[in-house]
C-alpha cells in the first residue's frame, strides 16, 4: 500500500504521518509512506488545503489532521 502525505512541512503534516504510521503498525499492515513537500508536486494532485493524504494515487483527504477512524478505513 502506497500512502503519500502532501504538505509543505508544517506541524500538522508531521503529526499526520506519525498517526498513519501508528495506525498501520497497530493493524500490522505494511505501508510505504512518503512525504511530498514540493509545491508543484502537491498542486499536481489538485488539493487546496494541506495536509492531504493520497492512498494508491487517489486523494482521500485534504485539510487538517485526519481522524483515527478515517485512517483505519483507508488501511483495509
Amino acid at each position: 500500500m502506497q500512502i503519500k502525505v502532501l504538505g509543505t512541512g508544517c506541524a500538522n503534516c508531521r503529526s499526520t504521518v506519525a498517526l498513519i504510521d501508528q495506525a498501520a503498525q497497530a493493524k500490522g499492515i505494511a505501508i510505504e509512506i512518503t512525504k511530498v513537500e514540493d509545491l508543484k508536486d502537491i498542486m499536481s494532485y489538485g488539493v487546496m488545503s494541506t495536509p492531504a493524504v493520497v492512498v494508491d494515487g487517489k486523494v482521500v483527504h485534504a485539510g487538517g489532521i485526519p481522524s483515527r477512524d478515517k485512517i483505519d478505513a483507508w488501511l483495509k
Partner: peptide, 17 residues
C-alpha cells in the same frame, strides 16, 4: 472558510488555477 496559514500557498494556486 476554514483556513490555516500553512496551506495559504496551495489555496492561492488552487484559486488561480
Amino acid at each position: 472558510t476554514p483556513f490555516c496559514s500553512c496551506s495559504a500557498v496551495p489555496l492561492f494556486i488552487g484559486f488561480l488555477s
